[in-house]
Simulated scan of single mutants.
Amino acid sequence: MGIAVVAAAGASSSMAFLRTRAQRARWVLTPLASSSFSAKPISSSASSSRKLVLYSKPGCCLCDGLKEKLLVAFTLSGPDSLHDVELQIRDITSNPEWEKAYQYEIPVLAKVLSDGTEETLPRLSPRLGVELVQKKIAAALKQ
């Protein structure tokens, strides 16, 4: 069984995450017009209906910690699986509106609703383990 390692452009090796080939889904990091990246699993379904946005900035240790936990949480299976969730990571320093809104709050995790609007999720404690992060996100996405 092989292991694939994927990291965002310019990301440190600590931002890399592992997936086994047996899990079938791959992650693709695509630059967006807003200078952010979209981390999206490619699975058998053509498009994901569950989407999250993470507002962060470079050099934020809380942001980096949450990114790492999210990327691992997305690889876990089980009843709270997040394999079909699209995660878009937005650098608030690339957009003055985001920076004004979130400069003192990052990391901010929001779910994208069916009408395209965003709903901010409750802040996840940096002390939470990956499994608990997965459960809390899965519960928030069900609401």
Rank of each mutant, 00 (worst) to 15 (best):
S14W: 01
S77D: 03
V108H: 13
H83A: 08
F74T: 00
K51H: 13
W98D: 14
E68D: 06
N95S: 00
L87E: 04
D91L: 03
R90F: 04
L82Y: 02
S44Y: 05
F74I: 06
P79I: 05
A7D: 06
R21P: 01
Y55R: 08
A16T: 06
A101T: 08
S12A: 11
S94Y: 03
G65W: 04
A73V: 13
P107V: 03
K51R: 06
F74Q: 14
L29W: 10
R24L: 12
K69G: 04
R26L: 06
A39S: 11
V72G: 09
P31G: 12
R24V: 15
P79M: 11
L76A: 13
E68R: 10
A73I: 07
S43R: 12
S47K: 12
S34F: 06
A39P: 08
Y102M: 12
L76Q: 04
Q88Y: 14
K100P: 15
A39M: 10
T93Q: 13
L109W: 01
G78P: 03
Q103V: 07
C63D: 08
S14D: 01
L70H: 11
C61P: 12
S94V: 02
P31W: 03
S81P: 02
A39H: 03
V108S: 06
S45N: 01
T30N: 11
S38G: 00
S14Q: 01
D64N: 06
F74A: 09
C63I: 11
D64A: 14
A8W: 01
S49C: 05
L82V: 00
N95E: 12
V5R: 05
D91T: 12
A73K: 04
A11D: 10
A73Q: 06
S56I: 13
A110M: 05
L62H: 11
L29E: 11
W27G: 06
Q103P: 07
K40F: 13
R26V: 04
E97D: 00
A25K: 14
V6F: 09
R90W: 02
F17C: 05
R26N: 05
C60K: 11
L62G: 00
E68W: 05
D64W: 00
Q88M: 02
I89C: 05
T75D: 10
N95G: 02
S43D: 02
C60E: 08
F17G: 09
E105F: 05
G78H: 07
A9R: 15
F17Y: 04
S77V: 13
V5H: 03
K51P: 14
A73P: 14
T20L: 08
R50Y: 05
V28Y: 02
Y55T: 03
P96M: 05
C63N: 11
A22N: 02
Q88R: 15
V72I: 02
Y55G: 05
R19T: 00
E97R: 11
A22Q: 13
I106M: 12
L82A: 13
S14E: 03
Y104C: 12
K40E: 10
L82M: 12
F74P: 07
V5A: 06
R50V: 09
I89L: 07
S13F: 04
V85M: 14
V6K: 01
A16F: 00
A101R: 07
G59Y: 10
A22V: 12
G65S: 13
M15I: 02
F74L: 00
E97W: 13
R90G: 15
A46I: 10
E99N: 15
I106T: 09
